[in-house]
Each structure stands twice: as structure tokens, then as C-alpha cells.
């Protein structure tokens, strides 16, 4: 009935092709519950995979599963599937720019020189040549306990007691 009465109006205003009423896709309840179940299964997979030692692949798998989960939430819970494509473009662009942010920051840090503690100059770690920029390598207990103890500890700003603590737990 409504379609019939509306038609003459639509033809009369033929230049206006925009929809008047809101026509959003209505998701099926069972379908949404299904998506939720998939998200729970993926959560269990994430936890299960983290129990297995795959080396550096662990992080990759965890991020892959998280991205699939995020994709399900965005596509179906947030209705991107039935949304105007431009909204999806906006959403994806956030991740593109996040990628730019992460890539250039990590690229900068990994190609900077390191401070040579004995000579006080900035060098490339791989060949010892002079390099621009630079930062002090972080002293981990592993480094502190094994080699290069004096030099590594000396150029680190934290109090010396901090480095000795893990080696001498009887302090308390």
C-alpha cells in the first residue's frame, strides 16, 4: 500500500534520488549471535596458540587472529558490510596511517647509530662507523650479569644498586 501511494510522489520529484527515510540494514538476531560465537572461538584459539611456543610466529598469529576478530566486529556489529563504502575507506585509512606511524618510527630507531660508551661517539652497531643520532642501549640484567658489565652499567643512568639487585636477591 505504502509503495503504491509513494510512487507518484517519487516521480514528481524525479530529480531528488536521495532516500527520504532511514533505510539501515537490520541484522538478524541469530546471525549476530553467530558472529559472537565465532569471536569466542577465536578468543579460545588466541589463548591456545599462546600456550604453544612458535617462536616469533606467536606474535604474528596473535595479531592475525586479533585482526580477524576486529574485522568481524567492524563488518557485522558495526554494520560496515551494509554501510556506504566511504565509511569503510575512512576506517581503513586509520590503520594505514597507524602503519605509517609505526613503520617510520621503528625504521628510524633501527637505523640510528648507537653510542659507543668507551669513545663517546655515535656509531653503527654493525660496522663501528660514525653515525648520525643515536641512543644509549638499554642495559638488561642479562647483559649486566654477563659481559661488558662495567661499560654497559656505567653509561646507564639508573642507580648502580638497581643492577646489582637481581644478582643478589638476599637483599631483603
Amino acid at each position: 500500500m505504502s509503495t503504491h501511494t509513494n510512487e507518484p510522489h517519487d516521480q514528481a520529484h524525479g530529480e531528488d534520488h536521495e532516500e527520504w527515510d532511514v533505510h539501515a540494514h537490520i541484522s538478524d538476531t541469530k546471525f549476530l549471535v553467530g558472529i559472537f560465537s565465532a569471536l569466542i572461538v577465536l578468543t579460545i584459539i588466541t589463548v591456545a596458540v599462546s600456550r604453544v611456543d612458535l617462536g616469533s610466529a606467536n606474535t604474528f598469529v596473535a595479531m592475525l587472529v586479533a585482526t580477524v576478530k576486529a574485522g568481524l566486529v567492524a563488518t557485522f556489529f558495526m554494520h560496515l558490510r551494509h554501510e556506504k563504502p566511504f565509511n569503510t575507506v575512512i576506517f581503513i585509512s586509520a590503520f594505514v596511517f597507524l602503519g605509517v606511524f609505526i613503520f617510520f618510527t621503528l625504521d628510524d630507531l633501527s637505523t640510528r647509530g648507537r653510542i659507543d660508551p668507551s669513545n663517546g661517539v655515535t656509531v653503527y652497531a654493525r660496522n663501528g662507523e660514525a653515525a648520525p643520532g643515536g641512543f644509549t642501549p638499554i642495559v638488561t640484567p642479562e647483559h649486566g650479569a654477563t659481559g661488558a658489565h662495567g661499560a654497559a652499567a656505567a653509561d646507564h643512568a639508573a642507580p648502580a644498586a638497581g643492577h646489582d639487585a637481581p644478582a643478589a636477591p638476599a637483599h631483603h
Partner: peptide, 25 residues
Amino acid sequence: SPAQQFDTAKLGMWIFICTEILMFG
């Protein structure tokens, strides 16, 4: 129209979501 108002609100929200992702970024 209501449809235009609805779409505009969603466009604004998606842009806001973008800024949120970059803040956590």
C-alpha cells in the same frame, strides 16, 4: 531528509573512530 541526517551522523562517528584509533596508536 532523515536519511541524510543519519548518514551524516555516521560519517562524523567514523571520523571520530579514526582519531580514537590514532590516539591509541
